[in-house]
Simulated scan of single mutants.
Amino acid sequence: MQNPEGGPVLVGVTGEQPESVPERGVAFAKAFDRDVVFAWVDTTQYTSGFMSDGTVAFTTFDPDPSAEGDPDITWLDERAKAAADSAGVAWTTRVGAGQPSAVLGAMADEIGASMIVVGTREPGFIAGLQEFLGGSVAAHLAHTQSRPVVVVPLLPADKDGRVPWEPEA
Rank of each mutant, 00 (worst) to 15 (best):
D109K: 15
R121I: 07
Q145P: 02
E5R: 06
S66K: 13
F61A: 10
L10F: 00
A142L: 08
V117Y: 07
T60Q: 06
F28P: 04
A29F: 05
G25F: 00
R24W: 01
F61S: 11
L10V: 00
A138F: 02
R121A: 11
G112L: 01
K159N: 09
D72P: 04
T14N: 06
G112R: 02
I126T: 15
P71F: 05
P8A: 15
T93C: 09
G49L: 10
L141A: 01
S20C: 11
A57R: 11
T60S: 14
D42M: 01
P123N: 14
G124P: 06
G96K: 10
T44N: 09
R34K: 12
V150Y: 05
P18L: 09
V9R: 04
L141G: 00
M1Q: 10
T47D: 12
P123R: 06
L76S: 06
A113Y: 03
V95D: 01
A157E: 08
G69I: 07
A82R: 14
D85Y: 10
F28S: 05
H143F: 10
Q45W: 09
D64C: 12
T120L: 01
P167R: 15
G69E: 12
I126V: 15
K159S: 12
T92M: 07
V137F: 01
V151W: 05
D160Q: 09
V95P: 02
A67I: 08
A102E: 14
L129E: 13
V150I: 13
P71R: 01
T47V: 15
N3I: 00
T43Y: 04
L76D: 02
Q130S: 12
V137E: 01
E110Q: 10
F38R: 00
L133S: 07
L10R: 04
Q45C: 10
A169S: 14
T144G: 05
